[in-house]
Amino acid sequence: MKKRNNPNSKWSIVTSGIIKNNPTFRLVLGTCPTLALTTAAMNGIYMGLATTFVLVCSNVMISLLRNIIPDKVRIPAYVLIIATFVTVLDMVIEYALPDVYEILGLYLPLIVVNCIILARAEAFASCNTIGDSALDGLGMGIGFMLSLTLMGAIREVIGAGTIFGAAIGNLPEYSMSVIAMAPGGFLVYGLMMAAVNQISIRKRDKALREELRIEELKPIIIKEGK
């Protein structure tokens, strides 16, 4: 338990990407595939797994080469490494899983420019050990996958009345297909972000109250010019 609370422990590196620094809801990275692909829960799992693979592989490779990549060309070098792994994944999925390839469509090659991967390469892998970088990639990937799957599940249940493709009773007859479309993506994403923000604010306030030993925190309103 003590180990989990240590911010430098291996476990903390993994959980940081899942909860505290969740790429979708806390860092607001990778919004394009989040909005486009979360029409169904299964899509979230496919995209999450694909991104996790690229994140782990690129983090390990960048961490391995961090001492020999000159600073001036680090971004082209990172993009080259990320693009290689994305292309490998693209070719393998097209060959082995054509149905998944159809679902991911354009968003699979677009993982190259996914902000999460470049951000983790620059912020973490370029200055940490290979093992820690792999764990960071794994945590971020799992966090991204869970967010996408949760959002996909909500949109699928409300928008199509199904969950993982299986109909829920008579719900398909009362489905609101606008939720499965683009406007629904923005709506659900906004509401979920508001919920996550509310939870994190409460958590922060609770921690602050415990630290200051006071009952309630009241916001101080400062009116300008008065």
Binding site: L65, I68, I69, P70, V73, P76, A77, L80, I81, A83, T84, T87, V88, M91
Partner: peptide
Amino acid sequence: IVLSLIATVAGLLL
């Protein structure tokens, strides 16, 4: 050298 090396390895792998 570094960029060429990465590109060569990537090309061979792909």
